[in-house]
Simulated scan of single mutants.
Amino acid sequence: MRPRDAALVAAGGFAGAVSRHAVAVALPEAFPWGTLAANIAGAFLLGLVVYETAKSGRIPDAARLLLSTGFLSSFTTYSTFASETVALAPRLAALNVVANYALGFLAVLLAREVVGWRS
């Protein structure tokens, strides 16, 4: 990896991690709302980047590294989702799993539609 690429990923990763933390502390802690919100928003934004790149190719490589590999990979979090889910009561844990996967998947589908509307 080129040093410039590594710097883009690092800068995006720092911003993504700080942003995810801000979302987590802004939302109630009784249920992992912060992680759920970050995962859904991140899935939507990643869908926009992926589908826009596939459709038009107008997103430069540097921007994709900064946004996708850097920011969004740190903003979304599987490890926190997993550890928070294990700590929940069984019914809430099941709800959290379904919510993260179903809403994340729907967010990506919505991003695909948003990119398609612009045609």
Rank of each mutant, 00 (worst) to 15 (best):
A41D: 04
T69Y: 00
A38M: 12
D5L: 08
A24P: 01
T53Y: 11
A63D: 05
P60E: 13
V50S: 03
F105A: 08
V49S: 13
T77I: 02
W117C: 09
V108S: 04
A111L: 04
A87F: 07
T69V: 14
G57N: 03
L27W: 05
E84Q: 15
A17M: 09
G13E: 11
Y51G: 01
L46P: 09
E29I: 04
A93R: 01
L48V: 03
T77V: 00
Y51M: 06
R20P: 01
P90V: 04
V98G: 12
R64D: 01
F75T: 06
P32E: 13
L106T: 02
V86W: 10
S119V: 05
F14N: 02
S68F: 09
S19L: 07
L72W: 14
I40M: 03
F44R: 02
A111M: 02
L8H: 09
A99L: 15
A15E: 09
A11M: 14
H21N: 01
L45A: 12
L46N: 00
P60M: 01
L45K: 00
A11H: 08
A82D: 02
L92I: 00
T53R: 12
V86T: 06
A37D: 00
V18A: 15
V114C: 12
Y51W: 07
V115C: 11
D5W: 09
V50D: 00
G104P: 06
L65Q: 11
V97Q: 01
P60L: 01
L92F: 07
A62R: 14
A7V: 14
S73D: 04
S56L: 11
E113I: 00
A107T: 11
A17E: 10
A10T: 10
F75V: 04
T76V: 02
V108W: 03
V97F: 06
G104Y: 08
Y51I: 00
S74K: 04
L92A: 12
L46R: 00
A41N: 07
Y101Q: 09
K55C: 03
P3F: 14
A82I: 08
V115M: 13
L109E: 15
S68I: 05
